[in-house]
Simulated scan of single mutants.
Amino acid sequence: MGALHLEGVGAVSVEDELLDHVFTVMIAKLRRHEPVVLTWSDEYGQEQRVFVTPVTFVRAEFDTGARIARDKVWLDRLMMAANSQGGLSLTSAVLDRAGTRIPTAHLPVASRPPAA
C-alpha cells in the first residue's frame, strides 16, 4: 500500500496500482494548469474532499518499486472523472475497478457496487 501525499492534508493510503494511475491523471491535469477535486473515504468512513491546484505539493510514495503497465481504459475513466464537476473519487475507483462506471464523487455511496 502506497500513499498520496497532499499539501495541507497529509498522506492518503492508496494501493500502488491505483496510486500509479491516479498520480498519472493528476499530473496530466496539473501540467495543463487544471485543478482537480479528489475525494476518498478515510479510515473512519468519513468522506474527505480536496481541491488540488497546480501550486499544491503532491507526492506519490509507492510501497514497491515494481510497476505494471498502465491500463489505458482505466486511465481514460479516471481522467473523465477528474474532468467532471464531482471530481475523481478514490473510493469509487476501488469499488468499480473492473466495471464501466466513471469513478466520480457524483456516484452516491448507496448505489456504488458492493466490494468483491
Rank of each mutant, 00 (worst) to 15 (best):
P114E: 13
M79N: 03
M1V: 08
L18S: 04
T39N: 04
A82G: 01
E15P: 00
V25F: 01
V14M: 04
P103D: 10
V73L: 04
E43S: 15
A60N: 06
V109C: 01
G2V: 13
T56G: 08
R32K: 14
V58D: 03
V36I: 14
G10C: 06
R97C: 02
Q85I: 07
L38A: 15
P108W: 09
A98F: 05
E17C: 00
D20W: 13
T24I: 05
R59S: 03
Q85G: 13
I68G: 06
E17Q: 11
F51K: 06
P108L: 04
A60R: 08
A28C: 10
P54K: 15
R77V: 05
T39E: 02
W74N: 07
Q46S: 03
V58K: 07
A115E: 11
R32F: 01
R101D: 10
D16W: 12
G87A: 07
F23R: 12
G2F: 02
L19A: 06
N83M: 09
E47V: 04
G10E: 11
P103L: 07
R49A: 12
V94L: 09
A110L: 09
R70A: 14
Q48V: 15
A110M: 12
I102M: 07
K29T: 03
L95S: 13
F51W: 13
S111Y: 11
D42N: 15
L30R: 10
